[in-house]
Design a protein around this nucleic acid. Structure first.
Lengths: 343, 343
DNA sequence: TTGTAGGCGTTATCAT
DNA sequence: ATGATAACGCCTACAA
């Protein structure tokens, strides 16, 4: 029997077997220096006593916790939920655990969370930085100088040279627009998200480039600014439809406003995709259930999570892996063509 | 200056100030037994040296990690993302952290995750148990016997008397149906989810009770079984519409099939809600963007997370709080009436 | 092949 | 009010 009432430790096992704790420690680690017989004995006894190694103690001793910190703006956003799933998948396989924190898009909270994670002795931190006006670049510069492995994903502070896995929004905008062009649509409009937000700016740039490269001019009347996701969708649609020559296709910077567009066109009796093609962005789960099914751009969320975790773990596991990885990995989004943009 | 190059510890601070580590420890904890002057001195020096307390070491010594384990089937499901957000909110406020694990709805993995969390010395585990046929009740009985605080939420093993925060799906089904009845609909159909899954069975029972209590009979032809979320929605609709007397309202056990129903009715030229009312279940985010906006039943996800965390923390913080809490807290879902069921 | 001893950083107990 | 010491559980030189 283990002595006290508490959990069994290597000392308990050692005592039971008339061995020393260090031998038990080695045996449990399957260290070949210990005789096979002893190893079997120890491991059997460990099972018998339902021994659960204390990872906290091991962490303290080894100076490694096998825990990774993850900071996202909000865990209940579908995008981050999926990325975290990817992260957890990889981490789990590699024997790491993740502690998830939310910044609620506040730079201040983000810094606080970094601090907390450091105190928890995490081996590295993966961050999708808050969309906050407050500058945080210097904070991370200092942090990285301490040697703590950092890996950004999705969003990263401006002007920081740090490992990151991001998505090429410009390419996404380009390909979405290109798809519409190739599908034979003539007058392609764009529902443009807030331009101070990086991703929307890039999607817009991709739109412009695709138009330009196809030898088309970007009619400013075809570029409608939308702020909130849903509500401005219908207004935008009306605005477009009142033009002397309405567009025959729309590339929306978000699935939500794209859906609002579909909704509005139904209301006004415009058939999608026959009279008007629509493509969104993000591959939200509802894109498959609305009528018609919404074409969109997939952001490779799970892949992003997996890659970020892989790179993080590579660095944590082997410090000089850092050099061998490109600092910045840019993922290509994937256009998903569904009914709403196929005629 | 701190000695070595490593992180600063209380010993460094003590050395700098000509004090003893134990005094520093007390001072940092604002222990009033230490003179105000010394406390100030220590805290100033701690800031100066950018001291970050090592929570791992403290955890080892105190036998408490201030970490809670959370196990959910999959973090990228909107439902769990929201619950976790609620959990994290409360945990954060109380100075706890959460480690999130996914069971992928496998009982085996779930057990493994529990084990891992135990090794990490979490102070308690919050679980939404896997929808797996494999029985896991005995496992938890044993686990709870060890004294590890456990708190279930959303789903819990059958026949286990354990603290849990769950939602009353039967009531949700009842109220959704009642709403349709009160709104004056005559022939109310139900899209019924797989009955071996507890929640769908309860929603169906609520439907039956509402019908019965209103003095109506449940016409078996009005109860359509759907398996996968989307695809069977249209079939179900067609089946209903080919009835000699089609229903004038549908209560669907999921928002997805409800949306599919709306989609199908448009296709067949049936106006919602004038000719057919539809209400779903879960308050998915897309319910607000489809046309017409979908009535649904909100599951109080964030509240569920908050309450589960609150209860967990109460138990962890004060062992005899256990008694004072009802073992099982049942949350009432909330019907959200939107366009799709209002005439 | 196994044992001894020391320490990871903190906190609790006892002494001064 | 502060200091000395031990211990949390594990790991790892080093010794035997």
């Amino acid at each position: 029997m283990a002595k006290k009432s508490g959990k069994t430790t290597i000392h308990d096992i050692a005592y039971e077997l008339g061995l020393n704790a260090s031998t038990v420690s080695r045996a449990l680690a399957d260290n070949p220096v210990v005789s096979q017989k002893t190893r079997d004995l120890v491991q059997a006894k460990a099972r018998e006593l339902n021994y659960q190694p204390n990872r906290i103690a091991a962490a303290l001793r080894r100076g490694r916790s096998d825990i990774l910190g993850v900071i996202v703006p909000a865990i209940d956003r579908a995008f981050f939920g999926r990325v975290i799933r990817g992260i957890e998948e990889k981490a789990d396989k590699a024997g790491f655990h993740i502690i998830v924190c939310q910044s609620y898009d506040s730079a201040k909270r983000e810094r606080a969370m970094v601090s907390t994670l450091q105190r928890l002795q995490v081996d590295g931190i993966m961050i999708s930085t808050a969309k906050d006006k407050e500058p945080i670049t210097d904070f991370y510069k200092q942090l990285m100088a301490t040697g703590l492995p950092i890996q950004f994903f999705d969003t990263m502070p401006a002007g920081l040279d740090a490992p990151a896995v991001v998505i090429d929004d410009e390419l996404g905008g380009f390909e979405a627009t290109e798809h519409l062009i190739k599908a034979g649509y003539e007058r392609i409009a764009h529902l443009r998200g807030p331009q101070h937000i990086h991703i929307y700016h890039d999607r817009y740039r991709g739109y412009v480039r695709a138009m330009t490269e196809a030898g088309r001019t970007v009619d400013p009347r075809y570029v409608i600014d939308i702020d909130s996701h849903f509500d401005s969708g219908e207004e935008a649609f009306v605005q477009l439809w009142n033009l002397p020559q309405p567009p025959d296709a729309i590339f929306s910077s978000s699935d939500y406003s794209a859906a609002a567009g579909i909704k509005a066109s139904e209301k006004y009796g415009i058939r999608v995709p026959e009279e008007l093609a629509i493509i969104g962005f993000a591959n939200e789960s509802f894109t498959e259930i609305i009528t018609p099914k919404l074409s969109t751009v997939d952001q490779q969320t799970r892949t992003m999570g997996r890659l970020a975790a892989e790179r993080m773990i590579a660095v944590v596991t082997d410090k000089n892996a850092l050099q061998s990885l490109e600092r910045r990995l840019v993922l290509a989004p994937k256009v998903i063509v569904r009914k709403s943009s196929q005629r």
